[in-house]
Design a binder for these strands. Structure first.
Lengths: 134, 134
DNA sequence: CAACCGGCTGAGAATCGTTGTCAACTTCAG
DNA sequence: CTGAAGTTGACAACGATTCTCAGCCGGTTG
């Protein structure tokens, strides 16, 4: 038997998207990445950018989070373990942080109220020094 | 001088939306509320539902949060002070919670990295007992 | 090295929640 | 009661994301 998972192919497009993510430590939107690639010369269809990002997210390679106005931002994070982010709402610059106590707290509060399958969203937004001075 | 803010009028539609929110303690989407009102008999245009909800949010009368797939959910909360939520992802049932230490922690982490104007998002999602048993 | 199978791509259409438009309408001060 | 101005609602417009599907190409096989 097999896991019947389709073999994943390495294509120019996938390499390009992955590379664009490697190139920055800021959270970027799919559209920004698409634009970056187009400018850089290795154009990739927008749909493909979205598909690739989704795949990377599913594989835990990339983190996503949503802006206040619903746009998804992607970032290749250093640590694969669960963590949170302090993101500059202006430029996307990001600092990875972990809330050692948050997980436990969330699980406890959930159980306390009879809720199961608890998940939590903890993100910090701010304006980084450079953006404030600009 | 004046704040030049336009006088706010009480209309059937606004009363209806406000009432629909009073009627439940669950987070509901604009579309759900619109449907509820239509079924109940006092139909209100969808655009008006959105406008009214936005106004209530701006006035701090109502809380908003976004689903994982980007939909906005609204709820008339008991306390006006800052707090967080434990929401059933299935039915919207909600428990208000406060993270006494979260605020301080967020501000500290922000300052520590040179970020200003810190805001934080802390929401818990789970499945309530009733929905799990159903 | 060439043929092939099936995953992959991309341009454009389709979704979907939400916001903008604007003529008709309603609230409420005077 | 009247008029000025805030409101409403049907519908168009938007913007991010997903779907379609015919053509393309990675990689394995013979």
């Amino acid at each position: 038997m097999s896991t019947s998972s389709a073999p994943v192919r390495m294509t120019r497009q996938r390499a390009a998207v992955a590379d664009a993510l490697e190139g920055t430590d800021e959270f970027r939107s799919a559209q920004q990445l698409h634009e970056t690639l187009r400018t850089r010369g290795d154009a990739v269809g927008l749909a493909t950018v979205y598909r690739t990002l989704q795949a990377l997210v599913d594989g835990g390679e990339v983190d996503v989070l949503r802006t206040e106005d619903g746009e998804s931002l992607y970032r290749r994070c250093a640590r694969r373990e669960h963590h949170h982010h302090l993101v500059c709402r202006r430029c996307g610059r990001t600092v990875e942080i972990d809330g050692p106590t948050v997980e436990a707290w969330a699980a406890m509060v959930g159980a306390e109220h009879g809720f199961g399958e608890i998940e939590h969203t903890v993100e910090l937004w701010g304006t980084c020094r450079d953006c404030r001075e600009a």
